[in-house]
């Protein structure tokens, strides 16, 4: 009997440990202590998707971010019920997507489609806001990291823009 109980609890504990490990791979949670991380583990949702199943659609209000536990996800644009659209990126184990939806519910800029049977962990804004309400100190570190990540992306985009502008200018003068 004890064997059964210990197995049940071990399975649950293994799943929790896996989620914690997965969360730690995401830069915004990377510097959190184990106890703090388990708060995010508690608000996370596990979801499974079949091959070709859509995780979210372009244009729908964003609710949160997903971290791939197993499988592959394609990020596509101009997708609809009949076609997957243009593939922008393909993500695998440990990759995450949709993190901007943690900040507001503006429409998703692309679709996310499971390229094979996929398991993901989702962290969503409503739960995150409620957690920050209860434990405000967690909000500081996580939001700081999120801002840092967005800032870096903006810098990279500005660099790209600058390069393109320079190319355009050389094209005009020559």
């Amino acid at each position: 009997m004890n064997f059964i109980w210990s197995n049940i609890f071990r399975d649950k504990k293994d799943a929790e440990d896996n989620t914690l490990e997965l969360l730690r791979k995401v830069p915004i949670f990377a510097e959190l202590k184990k106890r703090e991380l388990s708060e995010f583990q508690r608000i996370s949702h596990s979801r499974s998707y079949e091959k070709s199943e859509t995780i979210f659609w372009e244009g729908e209000p964003g609710v949160g971010m997903y971290i791939i536990q197993s499988g592959r996800v394609q990020i596509t644009q101009k997708c609809d019920e009949h076609s997957t659209g243009n593939i922008l990126a393909e993500l695998k184990n440990g990759d995450f997507f949709g993190e901007l939806a943690l900040l507001d519910d503006s429409p998703r800029s692309a679709c996310a489609i499971a390229a094979e049977p996929t398991k993901v962990i989702g962290i969503f804004r409503p739960d995150l806001l409620s957690l920050f309400d209860r434990k405000p100190h967690l909000a500081i570190s996580v939001l700081f990291k999120l801002a840092d990540m967005i800032g870096n992306r903006l810098k990279a985009t500005n660099q790209e823009l600058k390069k393109l502008q320079e190319k355009l200018n050389t094209g005009k003068t020559s």
């Binding site: 199943e53 859509t54 729908e60 209000p61």
Partner: peptide, 8 residues
């Protein structure tokens, strides 16, 4: 899955 985000 289709209604999950909406339900949330």
């Amino acid at each position: 899955n289709r209604y999950f985000e909406m339900m949330l």
